[in-house]
Design a protein around this nucleic acid. Structure first.
Lengths: 339, 339
DNA sequence: CCCGTACGCTGAACCGCACAAGTGACGAGC
DNA sequence: GCTCGTCACTTGTGCGGTTCAGCGTACGGG
């Protein structure tokens, strides 16, 4: 089956290629009657303009890129990225933009991918995830002048547009909630310390604990995997004055922590309260169901996609705040048992 | 920053565009010395040929497509797709092929996407997931003559290449294992009945149960979500002669089932043994850890990617069997308590 | 009545690359 | 010494679009 070209449409409509181009792109230069005729013929023979030819003649590639820098097993276990992609996609496909995905091993590889995409004119813009402080990707993208939206922040995004969520506020809300329940010894199992949002959460945790006079607040770091979450929990619960509540930076670690607590004979929430960041359906599957900080990730992705399309369209776009995660109390949090 | 073109390289090397093209594509027509000089200059100024121009002049788009037909929340909760994508990607990026992703709502939309990708010459080939019996996508792709690899089967793939795993064998192994433990009343919570692999597993389950003389074997269907898995489990465990072992078609439903059992006061594995299909890290996070049927999903994806690249290269490719899932016994299975 | 102009369309020049055909130099063979 | 072949390039063409200049026609105003 031969692919139809614009010339085929033009021939059948008895007009020139140019006229077809105007008609299909909604540009002036053809009468309404002719436009309708051309549109009908194009639909009839199933014509879609070649993305290559269109990209070549100066227009856009109608594609955006997303490079993911995580090993396969973490990528799989965290619902975050897949939900984000769903949301991004919903916005992109409505505008018939394609999403090009690439999994990379480190920041340098990611920058190389951006550079290649740019040189190949493969994408019109990119999303940047897992922002770090002093992220080398930011200046690299600025230098390339490749439209980009950072999914994360605030801050450290240079001149790039960004979409961010106020993790500090969410963390403060959580700590205040736990304190209101009566907790005084609260610990936190954080994600990778090199990521900006981990740092933001850590700072917020330190601040709010100081403000509320909780001097036994401590953060330990992990890497989002269940194994590390379990190890960190074991360490916390083995200490002399073990915490009565733990906040985990993702749901997988929280579930692992719950298992460890139960295995050590601690009742949840009686002896230990648990809060998970990221409220996936998993949190409701375990016993007790986990109190979690959730937000609409697909909507976050859609928001980022709208931002990127705006940047590509040449609009002046800066940072945009997305919804703040909200706490959904479930069975894993309660007042600490009187000691 | 202006993007370098082949003309820029040619000018700096003091040769024609044609010579540069030959040099970069490893074709004869330039001396080795000149080739090296051109390569060095191209690397120096960061030149990559425009994918659009390359695709336009008859070559390939150097991109393949993957359309996913699942709602966002299921896509997120199942590690399967993300792991598959990682594996696919590892193979593609080594050959500098790009992966274009699209989330669609139904089969018709998916076929429309294939048709558009084909007309736009956006991809050189596609992956087909979630195969059904009498899948309309198969004839559609055959008609378009768009290279494709079905991830699933065996059978019902028409003339398309495919990569499949012997789910029937894995299921038989599982049932035999449970029977060896002493179970006689085994139930199964299946996935979406319209999917081919669900049907294959159901048939295998029915067959092996008949062969082993288990006449109380029953399958109930679900949709891979925790809620549905919990509901199905509740139904099974409430019946007069409740099963002593349940096999779940994915890990999320198995975890939900475990919760339901514990909530109903049944001991796992004492009163009920549980086996999960898909062995993600989640299975080891719960208590007791779940006996699971696992396999290397990234490797599966990589296998599929190699198949697709072979089809694109014009090689004669048919079905290829991938690794069979193997049972990893953990704490959720044991002999049934004597009644 | 004639000119200016808006409309509707055509023809051609690009975009950046691959590849076929052409060219000049040089060496081998008779 | 002349031809022929090969090598190492160059030139030119076309892929399928977009876009701009140009051009005939109809129409309205002075």
């Amino acid at each position: 089956m031969k692919r139809p070209t614009i010339a085929d449409v033009a021939r059948r409509a008895g007009v020139s290629k140019g006229a077809v181009s105007y008609a299909l792109n909604g540009q002036p230069g053809v009468s309404e009657a002719t436009r309708q005729r051309i549109l009908a013929i194009a639909a009839e023979i199933g014509f879609s303009p070649s993305s290559a030819a269109r990209a070549l003649s100066g227009a856009t590639a109608k594609a955006v890129g997303l490079a993911l820098c995580r090993p396969a097993r973490i990528l799989g276990i965290e619902p975050f990225f897949m939900e984000l992609i769903s949301g991004v996609e919903s916005e992109l496909s409505a505008r018939s933009y394609a999403l090009t995905l690439q999994v990379v091993t480190d920041q340098e590889a990611e920058i190389a991918v951006y550079r290649r995409w740019w040189a190949e004119r493969r994408v019109d813009g990119v999303f940047v995830c897992d922002l770090r402080t002093d992220d080398r990707r930011v200046p690299a993208l600025e230098e390339l002048q490749l439209p980009a939206v950072v999914i994360g922040g605030p801050g450290h995004t240079g001149a790039l547009a960004s979409v961010w969520s106020d993790d500090a506020a969410a963390l403060v809300e959580t700590v205040e909630y736990l304190v209101a329940l009566g907790h005084r010894r609260i610990a936190r199992v954080g994600g990778l310390p090199s990521l900006l949002h981990t740092e933001i959460r850590t700072d917020a945790f330190t601040d709010v604990c100081r403000r509320l006079g909780l001097d036994e607040a401590s953060t330990v770091w992990s890497d989002y995997t269940g194994e590390e979450g379990a190890r960190a929990t074991r360490r916390l619960l083995s200490s002399a004055r073990r915490p009565t509540a733990v906040i985990y930076d993702n749901d997988v670690m929280a579930i692992a922590g719950l298992s460890v607590a139960q295995e050590m004979g601690l009742a949840v929430p009686g002896d230990l309260s648990i809060v998970a960041w990221d409220d996936s359906p998993l949190c409701q599957l375990v016993h007790p169901p986990l109190t979690a900080l959730g937000r609409d990730i697909p909507a976050y992705g859609a928001h980022a996609a709208r931002q990127l399309l705006a940047v590509i369209a040449g609009e002046e776009v800066t940072g945009a705040q997305d919804e703040t995660a909200h706490l959904t109390p479930r069975g894993s949090t309660a007042p600490p048992r009187a000691t």
